[in-house]
Design a protein around this nucleic acid. Structure first.
Ligand SMILES: [Mn+2]
Ligand SMILES: [Mn+2]
Ligand SMILES: [Zn+2]
Ligand SMILES: [Zn+2]
Lengths: 157, 157
DNA sequence: AGCAAATCGAGACAGAGTCTCATTATCAAA
DNA sequence: TTTGATAATGAGACTCTGTCTCGATTTGCT
């Protein structure tokens, strides 16, 4: 996947705030700069830590208040990987509907997109009398490297 | 989907326990009878409540200790529907790989199976150097009834 | 500057799930 | 059937993620 334009995402979010008559505060700026300054998936707690490196005054409450705005804007995607915390994906607006394969042995995560999959989901949903609003496919798998090693060196790759 | 043989599932689980040198206690029996006595999806807390109707002495701890055994045995499936609790599906061994469409408006859940989907997942995974161990597709959608009503009467159906 | 409304941080709170530990139940062997 | 090693139990303390409250502050607009 090509490198996305993070500046554009940030500006879109600022416009989103303005449209809803929400204010641009220094804490929100720190959070937003953090979110759109990385390609990585992150947790709420990681976001708090990173944002605090930019502005020490950012609180947990503000992070948790800002995350729903980010997802509502469509620029960040909230995901479940079967853990007891949520994972956020800042690289979403550029790759809508992408999904993930997770290696259970080494925790490696690979992203993919598939038009065939999207079509199939629409087809199935239509047959059952639904219209798709969103979807999330998680494939838990074993990667080649792990098969070769024959042994689980967790997080060793 | 045809009505599954719940007695068989229960016996399989008892065999699973014996194989692992685990004991068959009255509390486990109450839990297992509950699990394989329903077709419905349930939460851990619901299972506790239902099992206590059979044996008042069943504790929360024992329910939470038994659930991993049930999933490990492959007879019950653990799922994420984006809530902050897990949902369990006792109707799994008979319909492996089935997935779910959830109506965001009325919380209706419909199950489906698709060979095409399974094949596509295997194909994609193989291309990326993985071999599938398990998968979970969640489609959030809007159902026909809700579209007709035009308004969200939550849980009204 | 001056004001109303949005936002803030701290920390109390909530809910799902885990862990500890003293006690009890299981089950195979004697 | 007794016995004993050990698996399993319940109560409740605890952890962790996430939410809510509230008094104090900041923002954006005139
Ligand atoms: Mn991703
Ligand atoms: Mn199901
Ligand atoms: Zn791997
Ligand atoms: Zn509906």
């Amino acid at each position: 996947m090509p490198a996305p334009d993070r500046t554009a995402a940030k500006e879109k979010f600022m416009a989103f705030l303005e449209e809803k008559n929400l204010r641009i505060t220094t804490q929100r700026r720190a959070i937003v700069d953090t979110v759109f300054g990385t390609d990585q998936h992150f947790t709420a707690e990681q976001l708090l830590e990173w944002a605090r490196e930019r502005d020490e005054s950012v609180s947990r409450a503000t992070v948790y208040r800002t995350l729903p705005l980010l997802t509502e804007s469509g620029l960040v995607h909230e995901m479940d990987f079967g853990k007891d915390y949520k994972i956020y994906d800042p690289n979403y607006a550029d790759h809508p509907n992408h999904n993930h394969i997770i290696c259970d042995d080494c925790d490696k995560i690979v992203e993919f997109e598939s038009n065939k999959l999207d079509e199939l989901e629409n087809e199935i949903s239509h047959k059952l009398g639904f219209s798709v609003k969103s979807q999330q496919l998680r494939i838990n798998a074993s990667c080649e490297e792990m098969k070769k090693l024959g042994e689980c060196k967790n997080k060793g790759l």
